[in-house]
């Protein structure tokens, strides 16, 4: 499923955070959004599945089209959020068992069939690369898991409601290198069936796994393109500075 932003503007009070965004994310590609801290990466991500409006004080203008339909005109925010999943920076284990963590959203959306629930649970944990580690303790409380495991559990939880687009906000920034490696591999695999948009602080991560990289600065898109091309041959001066480590 493809996602287009049409002239999307976000402001907080009097200050503009995102200026007239026109981006399109293509189907089954892994997009990385990079840029210095405070450039609006997280805001951009949150505006894509309408979680931004949960924080008070933001004004959002413009359109976000999910396969031709503007999500901001859709009355049912929960439908939007189900189709566009979002994984946050902090690994969150809900106060439930591992299995119930995965099924948290599925149960809400009305699935009652036990066999089906079990299949969903197994599939999603498998997809998140966690199945082998937790298959014997599905009924244990989820907080027993390590940070990296919990982050994969968060991904499984989002996958369980079968989203068409997966948004991730620096999912590895709180994890150690080996957990990061596992998640990167996982994302690469998922990108075969899903559109993924990954915000990252880590340039090397973008370089390693993204198909397309978008460079954001001061709420504006400076440059976007195929990852290899953008890193090897940036067109803009700002991008060059950022990649070579001059601006953070």
């Amino acid at each position: 499923m493809s996602l287009q932003m049409e002239d999307l503007q976000v402001s907080f009070g009097n200050s503009k955070i995102l200026e007239s965004m026109n981006l399109s994310f293509s189907k089954n590609k892994l997009h990385a959004i990079i840029g210095p801290s405070g450039c609006g990466k997280t805001t951009l991500l949150k505006s894509l599945n309408r979680t931004l409006e949960l924080d008070k004080g933001y004004q959002i203008k413009g359109k976000v089209n999910l396969s031709g339909e503007n999500i901001y005109e859709c009355k049912d925010t929960s439908w939007v959020r189900k189709r566009i999943g979002l994984v946050f920076q902090t690994p969150i284990a809900l106060p439930l068992s591992i299995k119930e963590n995965v099924l948290f959203g599925v149960r809400y959306f009305g699935e009652r069939n036990k066999a089906k629930l079990n299949v969903i649970c197994e599939n999603c944990l498998e997809q998140a690369g966690l199945w082998e580690e937790v298959k014997d303790k599905l009924n244990h409380p989820a907080r027993e898991l390590s940070g990296g495991q919990i982050q994969r559990l968060s991904i499984a939880r989002v996958l369980a409601v079968s989203p068409e687009i997966l948004l991730l906000d620096e999912p590895c920034s709180n994890l150690d290198p080996s957990a990061t490696k596992i998640i990167e591999g996982l994302l690469k695999k998922l990108a075969k069936q899903l559109t993924i948009i990954l915000v990252t602080h880590n340039l090397f991560q973008a370089k390693r796994i993204a198909d397309i990289t978008i460079f954001l600065m001061n709420g504006q898109v400076i440059e976007e393109g195929e990852t290899e091309a953008l890193f090897a041959n940036p067109k803009e001066q700002e991008t060059r500075d950022f990649i070579s480590g001059l601006t953070w």
Partner: peptide, 25 residues
């Protein structure tokens, strides 16, 4: 607040979030 965000971003409603996450926590 992370718990609220993580749950609501899945598309569940606030009452569901309250009963299944906030009260147990």
């Amino acid at each position: 607040p992370e718990y609220r965000q993580a749950s609501l971003a899945l598309g569940v409603s606030k009452p569901y979030l309250t009963l299944r996450v906030l009260i147990p926590l």
